Amino acid sequence: MTTLHIVDDDEAIRDALGWLFQSRSVPVAGWASAREFLDAWTAETAGCLLLDIRMEGMSGLELFDRLRAQGCRLPVIFLTGHGDVPSAVSALKKGARDFVEKPFNDNDLVDRVIEALAFDAEQRAREAGQAGVAARIASLTQRERQVMELVVAGRLNKVIADELGISMRTVEVHRSHVFEKMRVKTAVELTRLLTSAG
């Protein structure tokens, strides 16, 4: 489930932020420390991270670096005090999504988080689609793959038959299997599918 993860060692701020986001129907999970979130994080954790830059123990910046090192691509928005802006800018260069200075405008913060949640959902849907296409390609035989590549290159069945040294009928059978396994009806659909999946 797509959730906003609020990591802040100040319980009052965590509660206030939690209330703010729940009032806009954003699912929220609160974490009292960077370590607590790091221990719970898995690759399946979806959503967005709202991180206080300064915390006791592990800072928000340290948590961000450790998560990136472990392959976490959750969008991260830092909450910063005035003196932390240079650190936040440096985090942006390393791939953080945004930072918001305290005191912040409630609506502005919620809007930025909703954008980040939508970005994460789109990214996950795209990756799931790519994984699905990769699995379909993996189900093809070597000959079916060769036929598919030539179909996508715009070759006619007769030309494919000549290039692969097989009969037109065999090309038609392979082509039919490719379309069935790839769940498409036309060469145009097949090309579009492969292009969108990268």
Rank of each mutant, 00 (worst) to 15 (best):
90 S>Q: 12
117 L>A: 03
119 F>E: 14
69 A>H: 02
83 G>D: 15
16 A>Y: 00
79 L>D: 01
30 G>N: 13
63 L>D: 05
53 I>V: 10
26 V>C: 14
18 G>E: 05
39 D>I: 11
24 R>G: 05
21 F>D: 12
44 E>A: 14
25 S>Q: 11
52 D>Q: 03
120 D>R: 13
113 V>K: 09
55 M>T: 09
20 L>N: 11
84 D>N: 10
114 I>L: 01
121 A>N: 09
70 Q>V: 06
64 F>M: 04
67 L>D: 10
11 E>L: 06
50 L>Y: 02
31 W>K: 12
35 R>K: 15
34 A>T: 12
97 R>K: 04
78 F>K: 10
39 D>Y: 11
120 D>Q: 14
12 A>Y: 00
118 A>C: 03
114 I>W: 00
117 L>N: 04
65 D>T: 14
34 A>F: 08
53 I>W: 05
99 F>G: 03
71 G>P: 08
74 L>S: 01
77 I>V: 07
62 E>T: 15
114 I>R: 09
37 F>H: 09
47 G>V: 00
18 G>L: 06
58 M>E: 14
118 A>P: 02
103 P>V: 03
44 E>H: 12
75 P>K: 02
121 A>V: 08
45 T>Q: 10
14 R>V: 01
41 W>H: 14
93 K>T: 08
79 L>E: 04
82 H>G: 05
64 F>I: 07
12 A>E: 03
63 L>A: 06
19 W>V: 15
77 I>E: 01
28 V>L: 04
40 A>D: 15
71 G>Q: 14
89 V>L: 08
46 A>Y: 00
78 F>P: 00
110 V>S: 12
45 T>E: 06
109 L>C: 07
27 P>T: 02
14 R>K: 04
108 D>M: 05
65 D>G: 05
48 C>G: 09
73 R>W: 01
46 A>V: 01
27 P>L: 06
75 P>D: 00
119 F>M: 09
91 A>D: 07
52 D>M: 06
40 A>F: 11
97 R>M: 08
11 E>D: 06
92 L>G: 07
64 F>D: 04
51 L>Q: 12
121 A>F: 00
45 T>F: 09
30 G>V: 03
32 A>K: 15
70 Q>W: 08
36 E>M: 11
52 D>G: 07
89 V>A: 05
96 A>M: 04
80 T>V: 15
41 W>R: 01
56 E>L: 11
19 W>Q: 07
80 T>Y: 03
36 E>T: 13
67 L>P: 12
115 E>V: 06
